[in-house]
């Protein structure tokens, strides 16, 4: 535990430890509108190491999926990266032309999207989609690729993969389809997997299976995983570290143990308070009043100030910096000089 904290602070202070698989520095994603520019994501920085799962958590519109899409180079115009850098294995990728990103997507970054029911092309067999992906990235013959497709399906836990490989997506259940999607993401052994709400569309028992599968694959293959979700429970069970996003900014980042045990930012405490305990008397679940501001209506100062019970005058005027507090980092005036 202590070791991990030390390593993290070393990375943050810029000392060369092991090169992180993914490093995002000061990322800003902007959408030009008719009148001005709206930032969906502002000054987001984090890194993910080999074999590590970073949970990225936040409400809808907090910018978590946007961050994932930006990493894949798939932001939909007019959205674009207007500041910051993204490094994959030390190589800067945020400014690469699409031709080169095509070689990285699927090969070095695997993606898993929210809805397995719509992620697969309905008119091609899962085998055809797997073979297509494999042969795009690896030098294999059709027969070899087909064999690899069967192996991948087996690895993600699809029974009778030799037969299922010739089936169409609609012949699979939701959970099985998400396994196929994961197999597709793994097809070329990527070093980074971006899983955007991988279990949101699935029922709870299947959710647990898929998360366990993701965890196992991450451990076995040493891939780095960016797990985007709004479900703090999923993060607590699966992730190693967690970044909490609010209105496009990282407001708290640190190890899962530390953040679940002692959340620093009032928003994170609110999120933690919204998870019902499994044992004992269920107290009234905590609720955060209000809603997250839209990207075009973020208040001055701390973006959380309208909903924060502890907000003071300073929170209304100045943006709190992300500072280190006992092993995690949080952006709140409570920890950097008081709210007054």
């Amino acid at each position: 535990m202590l070791m991990q904290v030390d390593r993290q602070s070393a990375v943050w202070s810029g000392m060369p430890v092991a090169e992180p698989v993914l490093e995002v520095r000061g990322l800003r994603i902007s959408f030009p509108t008719r009148h001005d520019t709206v930032n969906a994501v502002s000054d987001v920085s984090f890194s993910i190491r080999k074999g590590e799962i970073l949970g990225v958590v936040g409400e809808s519109g907090a910018g978590k999926s946007m961050t994932g899409l930006a990493t894949l180079g798939l932001l939909e115009p007019p959205g674009h990266i207007s500041a910051g850098q993204i490094f994959l294995g030390g190589q800067r990728i945020d400014n690469l032309p699409d031709r080169q990103m095509e070689k990285i997507r699927g090969r070095r970054i695997g993606a898993i999207f929210q809805d397995p029911l719509t992620s697969l092309h309905p008119l091609f067999t899962v085998g055809a989609q797997l073979v297509e992906t494999i042969r795009l990235h690896l030098r294999l013959t059709r027969a070899q690729a087909k064999r690899r497709a069967v192996d991948l399906l087996k690895e993600v836990g699809i029974p009778a993969p030799e037969d299922r490989v010739n089936d169409y997506p609609h012949q699979f259940s939701g959970g099985m389809r998400q396994r196929v999607v994961i197999a597709l993401a793994l097809a070329a052994e990527p070093e980074l997997i971006i899983a955007d709400e991988p279990t949101t569309a699935l029922d709870v028992s299947v959710q647990a299976q898929i998360m366990a599968l993701l965890r196992r694959l991450c451990d076995d293959r040493g891939a780095a995983v960016m797990l985007v979700t709004h479900d703090m429970g999923v993060i607590a069970e699966t992730a190693d570290r967690v970044a909490v996003l609010y209105a496009g900014r990282v407001i708290e980042i640190g190890s899962v143990e530390e953040i679940t045990r002692a959340p620093k930012h009032p928003y994170t405490s609110g999120l933690m308070g919204s998870i019902p305990p499994l044992q004992g008397r269920v107290p009234r679940l905590m609720q955060i009043d209000g809603a997250m501001p839209r990207p075009d209506a973020i208040p001055a100062g701390c973006p959380f100030n309208p909903r924060c019970a502890k907000a003071g005058p300073r929170c209304l005027s100045d943006l709190p910096p992300l500072v280190e507090i006992a092993g995690t980092r949080a952006a709140c005036w409570l920890y950097s000089g008081g709210v007054n």
Partner: peptide, 15 residues
């Protein structure tokens, strides 16, 4: 605009 097209792009299928 569909998801499977977005996902195909994410798999690295050229435009």
């Amino acid at each position: 605009r569909t998801d499977f097209i977005k996902f195909a792009r994410a798999r690295g299928v050229p435009a």
